[in-house]
Structures are given as structure tokens and as C-alpha cells.
Design a binder for these strands. Structure first.
Length: 327
DNA sequence: GAAAGCACCTGACGGC
DNA sequence: TGCCGTCAGGTGCTTT
């Protein structure tokens, strides 16, 4: 299940393989995966063929690729190809002669490059994700829209002026993620204090802070020793700093491990799985010992609660439920 | 306007 | 073996 670290792994792969290349053809075997492109398949195709992918940018779990008619155009891009992996989306860079995957939804062909495959495939089993082309709008704070331009040998010439202070219209409402260099803990703390909700519900609200899904929310709460139902309007700044530091730490470690993977639903652009699931402390460990408690001789077991119609894993001892819990 | 609930979607899995 | 119900969960829409 792709969350922020997994999407960042994919972003880096796309940056390496497709930045600077021209889209030469597009096919859409299953139009359900471009349903957010309201004008249909032909318009989707027409907006892409002949354009150049200038960059690969990410905010939270949204990925976008600013498009230009020419890689050397001095004009900022006006449109972008947006991708969201949803629950089971995969973006694979492959050779056209590779057999088609069972859930292949969209294929993009690229201009030849000696060291790189020519096709980008979007595969999605549950069809929660999708692709669409949309307008780029200025960011509210005038800062770059998201994370991009990691050092790359394939960066587009002239890209030293990028990233632009632009973001897809549909992603403009979401907050910056903890790995974003422009993320502000103080700004998030203000928003949390103004909300009357529980801490995990807030962490999963992409409008407040993006990129945190069910897995990393549970892991960050466990690391910060905080309960998921802690009312956000009672948080003190050091506590907000603690939970965000924990989220940053767990997601950074997951990124270093190539992402978290429980099954074949998450792979990088070359089809390889990550290894971070072996390092999880809470998520998916119902009935197993809390490792922190075990270190001091306690035999506490991780418990699973149903919360927001999904599972929430926590330690009942080191993450005690607050008296004023907000579920 | 804020907060919460629910539909979307498919494959795996367990129970009968 | 086959059918049915449940579960997984990110996002956007609807309801309260």
C-alpha cells in the first residue's frame, strides 16, 4: 500500500528514467483509471502526446509531471500529468516487448534513450488511483509546490531554475508533508489546536498534513508514545513536535529501506519491493509483544481497535488512552 | 464551515 | 467446489 515513502521511491525512479523525455504515444486500456480526466480518453491523449516531461514533483501522495512543448522553453509549464497510486497503483518503466500485466490501465511511450526503457505503465488492481492532466496554479505561499529535483544525471537542461512555485489545482488544498523542506511544525500546531478532533484522525487528514496513511500514523503514534484519540486542541507545541519528528523519522527510515511492502501491491518503477515492513513496531502486530515494553520486562501485547472503519494498532501501556479521548 | 460517515473498487481469505 | 460475506484503505462526496 503506497504511502509517502513509497511514492517518493517511485518519484525518484521516474525522475531518473523519464525526466526530459518526449511522450510519443498514449494508450488507455481501461478508462476507469483516467476518470478524473473529465474530458475523456482522446483529450487525455491529446494533452500528452508531443509534450516533454520537465520534472517529477511530489506533495504527500500526489505525484505530478510538469509538461512543456519543449524542454528548453523559458516559459513555466501550464499543465501537468498527475498520478495518484491510491491503494494498489504501480508505475513501471518497462520495455514495450514486456508482456502486459493483468491490471494494466494506461501506457505512455517515450522518445528513445539508449540507457532507458521506452514505456511507462500504470497498473492498478483496485482502481483507487489514477492519472489525469490538469492546470498548474501558483502555490498559496509562493514556495515550490512539493519535493523534486533530487540530484539526477537526467535533469532537464535549464532546470536549475525549477522547481516552480506551481501545483496542480486538485492538489492545492493538501498540506505539505513532513519530508518537505518547507514544512512548518508551528503552522501545523496552530491548525491542530483549532480543530476539535482526535490526533490520528488529524494525521490522516491530508488537508492538515499530507503523506501520512494508516501504517505510518500508527508507527508515528507508537514512536511518540501518544494515543490515537488524543484531542488535538489540548496538544502542546513540544507534543506536536514529537509526533511530527516521529513521523519524519519512521518515514525517512522507510525511504532508506526502499519503502514498506506487505505483498505485491507496492513496487518501485523497476518492479522491486521494499523491505521496511520488517521494521514495523505496531502496524499489523496484533497480539504480538510491544517491543518497548519487552525491553523493560513487561509482556504487553499490541492491540487492534477498529477506528474510522479501519484498523488501529497501539500499545495499551505506553500509549494510554486519555480520559478526554476523542474517537 | 467543520467534522464524521460512507461509497468506490478488487482480490484474498474464511466459513459454510 | 462454489458461493457469500468480510476485510484492506486513500480520497472525495454527502450528510450532520
Amino acid at each position: 500500500m503506497p504511502e509517502l515513502p513509497e511514492v517518493e521511491v517511485v518519484r525518484r525512479g521516474l525522475e531518473r528514467w523519464i525526466a526530459g523525455r518526449v511522450i510519443t504515444d498514449v494508450s488507455v486500456p481501461d478508462p476507469r483509471s483516467i476518470r478524473r480526466h473529465a474530458l475523456g480518453t482522446e483529450d487525455f491523449r491529446g494533452n500528452l502526446v508531443g509534450t516533454t516531461v520537465l520534472d517529477v514533483v511530489r506533495r504527500g501522495k500526489f505525484l505530478w509531471m510538469p509538461l512543456s512543448d519543449s524542454p528548453s522553453s523559458p516559459e513555466p509549464p501550464h499543465t501537468a500529468l498527475v498520478a495518484h497510486l491510491g491503494m494498489s497503483g504501480q508505475l513501471l518503466v518497462e520495455s514495450p516487448d514486456q508482456p502486459h500485466e493483468k491490471h494494466l490501465k494506461v501506457r505512455l511511450s517515450f522518445s528513445p534513450r539508449p540507457d532507458a526503457p521506452e514505456e511507462l505503465r500504470f497498473i492498478d488492481q483496485r482502481i483507487f488511483g489514477g492519472l489525469f492532466v490538469t492546470a498548474l496554479v501558483p502555490t498559496a505561499d509562493g514556495l515550490p509546490g512539493g519535493c523534486s529535483m533530487a540530484p539526477s544525471a537526467t535533469a532537464v537542461s535549464g532546470a536549475e531554475s525549477a522547481p516552480w512555485a506551481l501545483i496542480p489545482d486538485e492538489a492545492a488544498h493538501i498540506g505539505r508533508d513532513p519530508l518537505d523542506p518547507h514544512f512548518s511544525v508551528e503552522a501545523l500546531h496552530k491548525k491542530l489546536r483549532a480543530r476539535k478532533t482526535g490526533l490520528k484522525r488529524a494525521l490522516l487528514d491530508q488537508g492538515l498534513v499530507s503523506g501520512i496513511g494508516n501504517i505510518y500514523a500508527d508507527e508515528a503514534l507508537w514512536a511518540a508514545k501518544m494515543h490515537y484519540a488524543r484531542p488535538t486542541d489540548t496538544l502542546r507545541l513540544p507534543e506536536t513536535e514529537r509526533i511530527i519528528h516521529a513521523a519524519h523519522d519512521v518515514m525517512s527510515r522507510a525511504l532508506d529501506a526502499g519503502g514498506t511492502s506487505f505483498d505485491s501491491l507496492y513496487v518501485n518503477v523497476n518492479g522491486a519491493s521494499g523491505y521496511f515492513s520488517r521494521s514495523l513496531n505496531a502496524y499489523g502486530r496484533e497480539g504480538e509483544p510491544c517491543l518497548r515494553c519487552a525491553a523493560v520486562g513487561l509482556t504487553t501485547r499490541i492491540r487492534r481497535d477498529t477506528f474510522m472503519n479501519r484498523s488501529s494498532y497501539s500499545c495499551p501501556v505506553c500509549q494510554p488512552k486519555p480520559r478526554n479521548a476523542r474517537l
